[in-house]
C-alpha cells in the first residue's frame, strides 16, 4: 500500500520509476499493432449506433455517437457491418477498409449507405 502511494507521489513529479534498464531499450508496454477508431454516420450525417466493427476475430459496436474502437494483433482489414437490421436508423451496407499501417489508425468519419430495399 505504502509502495503504491509513494509510486503515485513520484509519478506526480513525472517519475514513472520504470526506467530504461542499463544497456536495454526504452520500457514499453504491449499494445496490439492494429488499432482502428472512427465514427459511422448515415448520408445525412447522423450517427449510427450498433454497427459492428471487426478486425479479424475481434469485434466492437459503435456507441450512441457512432464512435467505435477495435484492435487486433495482426489483422489489417476493418469491416463495418450492420448487425441489427432496421434498428438504429435503418439497415446499412457493410464496408471494408484496409488499415494503412500498424498502430493507431484514425479512420475519421465513415458514411454508410442505406441498403437498397428493392435488392
Amino acid at each position: 500500500m505504502l509502495g503504491r502511494i509513494l509510486t503515485k507521489l513520484f509519478a506526480l513529479f513525472g517519475m514513472t520509476l520504470t526506467c530504461v534498464a542499463c544497456y536495454g531499450t526504452p520500457y514499453d508496454e504491449y499494445r496490439p499493432y492494429f488499432r482502428a477508431s472512427g465514427r459511422v454516420v448515415d448520408e445525412a450525417g447522423n450517427p449510427i449506433p450498433g454497427i459492428e466493427a471487426s478486425l479479424g476475430g475481434n469485434h466492437a459496436q459503435s456507441n450512441d455517437n457512432g464512435r467505435f474502437y477495435v484492435e487486433n494483433l495482426d489483422y489489417d482489414l476493418l469491416t463495418l457491418t450492420d448487425i441489427d437490421g432496421e434498428e438504429n436508423g435503418g439497415e446499412f451496407e457493410s464496408k471494408e477498409i484496409e488499415l494503412r499501417y500498424q498502430g493507431q489508425n484514425d479512420i475519421g468519419v465513415v458514411t454508410l449507405e442505406r441498403k437498397n430495399k428493392e435488392n
Binding site: F10, G14, M15, T16, C19, A21
Partner: peptide, 11 residues
Amino acid sequence: TNPFECHAGIG
C-alpha cells in the same frame, strides 16, 4: 528523470 536505482534483480 528518476532517482538512482539498480534494477538488476529488482525488476
